[in-house]
Amino acid sequence: MLVEQIAVFVENKPGRLAAITKILADNKINIRALSVADTADFGILRLIVDNPQKAAKCLQDGGFTVVVTEVVAIEVEDRIGGLATVLGHLADAGVSVEYMYAFVNRSGENAIIISRFEHMDNAVKVLEGTGVKLVSKEQIYSM
């Protein structure tokens, strides 16, 4: 139930994000979701795209440092308290979150939470046990 995410190293200087998105556009890669974690000197750009392997390759060819990692995509009802319920289950099981970001899917009814946990296998087991809906990679890539 894991989804591939690409992470790109970005120096904090003008034009770097533009350069990355241009490479993706030129290679006809569609971005589903993104998040930037930043420090004073550099940032880590995380992307969910429709073709992660191709995206990683063309960014590497463009001189960027890229790693492909696996994350979980959780579907959460777009209503007050939707995310709190899911996180409550994880907290009860003692699962800690490394990072998380969200987007709303095209139908507009549910939110998709992209999450990375300290112990991925354990987190998936907990989530499946609570009946939370996990989105498959095929679904994400073709959204």
């Binding site: 190293f9 974690a37 880590i44 440092t65 890229v66 790693v67 990692t69 490394e98 990072y99």
Partner: peptide, 15 residues
């Protein structure tokens, strides 16, 4: 210079 062998998607590891 960063390189794949020591670039991480998690900021904590990178720091």
């Amino acid at each position: 210079e960063v390189s794949e062998s020591y670039f991480f998607d998690e900021m904590r590891k990178q720091r």
